Simulated assay, not measured.
Amino acid sequence: MKHKDLVWIHPDAKIGENVTIEPFTVIHGDVEIGDNTWIGPHVTILDGARIGKNCRIFPNAVISAIPQDLKFGGEMTYAIIGDNTTIRECVTVNRGTSASGKTVVGDNCLLMAYAHIAHDCVIGNNCVIVNAVQMAGHVEVGDYAIIGGTSAIHQFSRIGAHAIIAGGSLVRKDIPPYVKAGREPVVYLGVNRVGLRRRGFSNEQIYQIHEIYRTLYLKGYNTTEALNVIESTFQATPERDAILDFIRKSERGIIRTGHHAANHATEE
Protein backbone atom coordinates (compact mmCIF):
# COMPACT_ATOMS: atom_id res chain seq x y z
CA MET A 1 0.00 0.00 0.00
CA LYS A 2 1.36 3.42 -0.93
CA HIS A 3 1.81 6.25 1.60
CA LYS A 4 -0.85 8.36 -0.13
CA ASP A 5 -3.37 5.56 0.32
CA LEU A 6 -2.98 5.73 4.11
CA VAL A 7 -4.25 9.30 4.52
CA TRP A 8 -7.65 10.84 3.89
CA ILE A 9 -7.60 14.38 2.52
CA HIS A 10 -10.83 15.98 1.39
CA PRO A 11 -10.49 17.25 -2.19
CA ASP A 12 -11.56 20.76 -1.12
CA ALA A 13 -8.77 21.13 1.45
CA LYS A 14 -6.17 23.75 0.50
CA ILE A 15 -2.71 22.34 1.05
CA GLY A 16 0.35 24.56 0.52
CA GLU A 17 3.65 23.76 -1.12
CA ASN A 18 6.03 21.19 0.37
CA VAL A 19 3.57 20.04 3.05
CA THR A 20 4.26 16.59 4.50
CA ILE A 21 1.28 14.56 5.68
CA GLU A 22 2.14 11.30 7.41
CA PRO A 23 0.01 8.11 7.32
CA PHE A 24 -3.35 7.69 9.05
CA THR A 25 -4.07 11.44 9.16
CA VAL A 26 -7.51 12.85 8.31
CA ILE A 27 -7.98 16.35 6.84
CA HIS A 28 -11.47 17.71 6.23
CA GLY A 29 -12.63 20.01 3.45
CA ASP A 30 -12.71 23.52 4.93
CA VAL A 31 -9.05 23.42 5.91
CA GLU A 32 -6.07 25.49 4.86
CA ILE A 33 -2.48 24.44 5.58
CA GLY A 34 0.49 26.70 4.84
CA ASP A 35 3.71 25.88 3.03
CA ASN A 36 6.39 23.65 4.56
CA THR A 37 4.21 22.38 7.37
CA TRP A 38 4.66 18.86 8.70
CA ILE A 39 1.57 16.91 9.80
CA GLY A 40 2.45 13.77 11.73
CA PRO A 41 0.61 10.44 11.71
CA HIS A 42 -2.81 9.99 13.28
CA VAL A 43 -3.60 13.73 13.28
CA THR A 44 -7.19 14.93 12.78
CA ILE A 45 -7.74 18.36 11.22
CA LEU A 46 -11.40 19.33 11.00
CA ASP A 47 -13.41 22.01 9.19
CA GLY A 48 -12.45 25.54 10.12
CA ALA A 49 -8.74 24.90 10.63
CA ARG A 50 -6.37 27.55 9.31
CA ILE A 51 -2.80 26.42 9.85
CA GLY A 52 0.17 28.61 8.99
CA LYS A 53 3.52 27.99 7.37
CA ASN A 54 6.38 25.94 8.83
CA CYS A 55 4.24 24.37 11.55
CA ARG A 56 4.75 20.92 13.08
CA ILE A 57 1.78 18.94 14.34
CA PHE A 58 2.54 15.70 16.19
CA PRO A 59 0.58 12.44 16.42
CA ASN A 60 -2.97 12.34 17.78
CA ALA A 61 -3.44 16.10 17.86
CA VAL A 62 -6.98 17.25 17.00
CA ILE A 63 -7.32 20.70 15.48
CA SER A 64 -10.62 22.57 15.04
CA ALA A 65 -13.07 20.15 16.64
CA ILE A 66 -16.37 21.82 17.52
CA PRO A 67 -16.49 23.63 20.88
CA GLN A 68 -17.32 21.75 24.06
CA ASP A 69 -20.04 24.30 24.69
CA LEU A 70 -23.71 23.35 24.94
CA LYS A 71 -24.68 26.72 23.43
CA PHE A 72 -22.85 25.95 20.21
CA GLY A 73 -25.34 25.80 17.35
CA GLY A 74 -23.23 24.56 14.48
CA GLU A 75 -22.22 28.01 13.24
CA MET A 76 -19.15 28.26 11.01
CA THR A 77 -16.17 29.23 13.11
CA TYR A 78 -12.40 28.78 12.96
CA ALA A 79 -9.28 27.55 14.71
CA ILE A 80 -6.35 29.63 13.50
CA ILE A 81 -2.76 28.50 14.05
CA GLY A 82 0.05 30.94 13.24
CA ASP A 83 3.33 30.34 11.44
CA ASN A 84 6.21 28.34 12.93
CA THR A 85 4.09 26.89 15.71
CA THR A 86 4.66 23.40 17.11
CA ILE A 87 1.74 21.35 18.43
CA ARG A 88 2.83 18.23 20.27
CA GLU A 89 1.15 14.87 20.86
CA CYS A 90 -2.56 14.74 21.77
CA VAL A 91 -3.07 18.51 21.91
CA THR A 92 -6.63 19.65 21.23
CA VAL A 93 -7.49 23.08 19.86
CA ASN A 94 -11.25 23.66 19.54
CA ARG A 95 -12.68 26.18 17.12
CA GLY A 96 -14.59 29.25 18.27
CA THR A 97 -18.24 29.96 18.93
CA SER A 98 -20.45 32.78 17.73
CA ALA A 99 -19.06 34.88 20.61
CA SER A 100 -15.88 35.65 18.64
CA GLY A 101 -15.95 33.25 15.70
CA LYS A 102 -12.46 31.92 16.23
CA THR A 103 -9.83 30.41 18.47
CA VAL A 104 -6.36 31.78 17.78
CA VAL A 105 -2.86 30.48 18.48
CA GLY A 106 -0.14 32.90 17.38
CA ASP A 107 3.20 32.54 15.62
CA ASN A 108 6.22 30.72 17.06
CA CYS A 109 4.29 29.02 19.85
CA LEU A 110 4.93 25.66 21.49
CA LEU A 111 1.92 23.71 22.72
CA MET A 112 3.24 20.69 24.59
CA ALA A 113 1.61 17.28 24.83
CA TYR A 114 -1.96 16.92 26.11
CA ALA A 115 -2.65 20.65 26.35
CA HIS A 116 -6.24 21.72 25.66
CA ILE A 117 -7.09 25.09 24.12
CA ALA A 118 -10.84 25.68 24.36
CA HIS A 119 -13.17 27.74 22.19
CA ASP A 120 -12.57 31.46 21.67
CA CYS A 121 -9.17 31.49 23.35
CA VAL A 122 -6.57 33.89 21.97
CA ILE A 123 -2.93 32.99 22.51
CA GLY A 124 -0.31 35.52 21.43
CA ASN A 125 3.01 34.98 19.71
CA ASN A 126 6.03 33.15 21.15
CA CYS A 127 4.04 31.51 23.95
CA VAL A 128 4.86 28.20 25.63
CA ILE A 129 1.93 26.14 26.90
CA VAL A 130 3.49 23.28 28.85
CA ASN A 131 2.26 19.68 29.08
CA ALA A 132 -1.36 19.07 30.10
CA VAL A 133 -2.36 22.71 30.58
CA GLN A 134 -6.16 22.85 30.51
CA MET A 135 -7.47 26.15 29.19
CA ALA A 136 -11.18 26.93 29.38
CA GLY A 137 -13.05 29.13 26.91
CA HIS A 138 -12.38 32.80 26.18
CA VAL A 139 -8.94 32.88 27.82
CA GLU A 140 -6.49 35.50 26.56
CA VAL A 141 -2.72 34.96 26.74
CA GLY A 142 -0.24 37.71 25.88
CA ASP A 143 2.95 37.36 23.84
CA TYR A 144 5.86 35.42 25.35
CA ALA A 145 3.80 34.07 28.25
CA ILE A 146 4.77 30.68 29.69
CA ILE A 147 2.16 28.53 31.45
CA GLY A 148 3.56 25.69 33.56
CA GLY A 149 2.48 22.10 33.16
CA THR A 150 -0.89 20.80 34.42
CA SER A 151 -2.13 24.32 35.15
CA ALA A 152 -5.87 24.94 34.80
CA ILE A 153 -7.07 28.31 33.50
CA HIS A 154 -10.58 29.52 34.37
CA GLN A 155 -12.75 30.78 31.52
CA PHE A 156 -12.44 34.48 30.65
CA SER A 157 -9.14 34.77 32.52
CA ARG A 158 -6.35 36.90 31.05
CA ILE A 159 -2.61 36.31 31.26
CA GLY A 160 -0.36 39.23 30.44
CA ALA A 161 2.59 39.32 28.08
CA HIS A 162 5.90 37.97 29.40
CA ALA A 163 4.23 36.43 32.47
CA ILE A 164 5.35 33.03 33.74
CA ILE A 165 3.06 30.76 35.73
CA ALA A 166 4.31 27.91 37.89
CA GLY A 167 3.29 24.36 37.06
CA GLY A 168 0.15 23.03 38.72
CA SER A 169 -1.41 26.48 39.14
CA LEU A 170 -5.16 27.07 39.29
CA VAL A 171 -5.66 30.41 37.59
CA ARG A 172 -8.92 32.08 38.58
CA LYS A 173 -7.86 35.73 38.39
CA ASP A 174 -6.05 37.79 35.77
CA ILE A 175 -2.25 37.67 35.84
CA PRO A 176 -0.67 41.00 34.83
CA PRO A 177 2.21 41.37 32.36
CA TYR A 178 5.86 40.71 33.22
CA VAL A 179 5.26 38.85 36.50
CA LYS A 180 5.94 35.47 38.05
CA ALA A 181 2.91 33.77 39.57
CA GLY A 182 2.36 30.55 41.46
CA ARG A 183 1.24 28.80 44.68
CA GLU A 184 -2.35 28.06 45.68
CA PRO A 185 -4.16 30.32 45.50
CA VAL A 186 -2.04 31.87 42.78
CA VAL A 187 -0.21 34.97 43.96
CA TYR A 188 2.31 37.49 42.68
CA LEU A 189 5.86 36.19 43.18
CA GLY A 190 7.85 39.06 41.70
CA VAL A 191 8.89 40.23 38.27
CA ASN A 192 9.94 37.74 35.57
CA ARG A 193 13.44 39.20 35.46
CA VAL A 194 15.12 36.20 33.82
CA GLY A 195 12.59 36.06 30.99
CA LEU A 196 12.75 39.80 30.41
CA ARG A 197 16.56 39.80 30.25
CA ARG A 198 16.49 36.92 27.77
CA ARG A 199 14.21 38.98 25.55
CA GLY A 200 16.41 42.06 25.59
CA PHE A 201 14.78 44.25 28.22
CA SER A 202 17.25 46.74 29.70
CA ASN A 203 18.04 47.03 33.39
CA GLU A 204 16.21 50.36 33.39
CA GLN A 205 13.07 48.81 31.93
CA ILE A 206 13.15 45.93 34.41
CA TYR A 207 13.77 48.30 37.32
CA GLN A 208 10.74 50.41 36.39
CA ILE A 209 8.54 47.33 36.07
CA HIS A 210 9.73 46.14 39.47
CA GLU A 211 9.03 49.50 41.12
CA ILE A 212 5.57 49.65 39.53
CA TYR A 213 4.67 46.29 41.04
CA ARG A 214 6.12 47.31 44.40
CA THR A 215 3.71 50.24 44.31
CA LEU A 216 0.81 48.03 43.28
CA TYR A 217 1.37 45.18 45.71
CA LEU A 218 3.56 46.27 48.61
CA LYS A 219 2.71 49.84 49.64
CA GLY A 220 -0.74 49.40 51.08
CA TYR A 221 -2.80 51.00 48.32
CA ASN A 222 -5.99 49.55 46.96
CA THR A 223 -5.88 48.85 43.24
CA THR A 224 -7.48 52.14 42.16
CA GLU A 225 -5.17 54.18 44.37
CA ALA A 226 -2.13 52.27 43.18
CA LEU A 227 -2.97 52.83 39.53
CA ASN A 228 -3.38 56.56 40.10
CA VAL A 229 -0.04 56.72 41.91
CA ILE A 230 1.69 54.71 39.18
CA GLU A 231 0.30 56.94 36.44
CA SER A 232 1.28 60.16 38.21
CA THR A 233 4.69 59.01 39.50
CA PHE A 234 6.28 56.86 36.82
CA GLN A 235 7.48 58.04 33.43
CA ALA A 236 5.23 56.95 30.57
CA THR A 237 6.77 53.93 28.83
CA PRO A 238 5.29 51.06 26.82
CA GLU A 239 5.76 48.79 29.85
CA ARG A 240 4.06 51.15 32.31
CA ASP A 241 1.18 51.74 29.94
CA ALA A 242 0.76 48.00 29.24
CA ILE A 243 0.47 47.31 32.98
CA LEU A 244 -2.03 50.12 33.54
CA ASP A 245 -4.13 49.16 30.53
CA PHE A 246 -4.18 45.47 31.47
CA ILE A 247 -5.30 46.07 35.05
CA ARG A 248 -7.90 48.69 34.17
CA LYS A 249 -9.49 46.28 31.68
CA SER A 250 -9.54 43.38 34.12
CA GLU A 251 -13.06 42.11 34.76
CA ARG A 252 -12.14 39.17 36.98
CA GLY A 253 -9.67 41.15 39.07
CA ILE A 254 -5.93 40.55 39.29
CA ILE A 255 -4.01 38.14 41.47
CA ARG A 256 -2.91 39.40 44.88
CA THR A 257 0.21 38.77 46.92
CA GLY A 258 0.84 36.90 50.16
CA HIS A 259 3.28 37.82 52.94
CA HIS A 260 5.94 35.39 51.76
CA ALA A 261 5.60 36.59 48.18
CA ALA A 262 5.83 40.21 49.33
CA ASN A 263 9.05 39.51 51.22
CA HIS A 264 10.48 37.67 48.21
CA ALA A 265 9.58 40.53 45.84
CA THR A 266 11.13 43.11 48.23
CA GLU A 267 14.43 41.25 48.18
CA GLU A 268 14.74 41.27 44.38
Rank of each mutant, 00 (worst) to 15 (best):
G16H: 13
C127N: 04
G48T: 08
L196T: 03
A65P: 00
A61H: 02
P238N: 02
P185Y: 12
E204K: 10
N222D: 15
E268M: 13
I9E: 10
V130S: 15
H260K: 15
D120A: 03
E204V: 09
T20K: 15
A49C: 10
C90Q: 13
D245R: 07
I57Y: 01
N192W: 10
P177M: 14
K180I: 14
T86M: 12
D5H: 01
S64F: 03
S151P: 00
V26M: 08
M112I: 02
I254W: 02
I129S: 11
H3T: 10
N94W: 09
Y207L: 12
H28C: 13
I175P: 01
K249G: 13
V186I: 10
R56E: 12
G200V: 08
L227R: 00
N54W: 05
N126C: 11
G106N: 09
I230K: 01
T266P: 00
T97F: 00
M1A: 11
I27G: 07
Y221G: 04
T257M: 15
V186C: 12
Q134K: 05
I243W: 14
A79F: 09
V141K: 00
V133Y: 04
P11H: 11
E211G: 00
A118K: 01
L6A: 01
A152V: 14
Q68N: 11
F58H: 15
N84A: 02
I15G: 11
R88L: 06
N108S: 04
A265I: 14
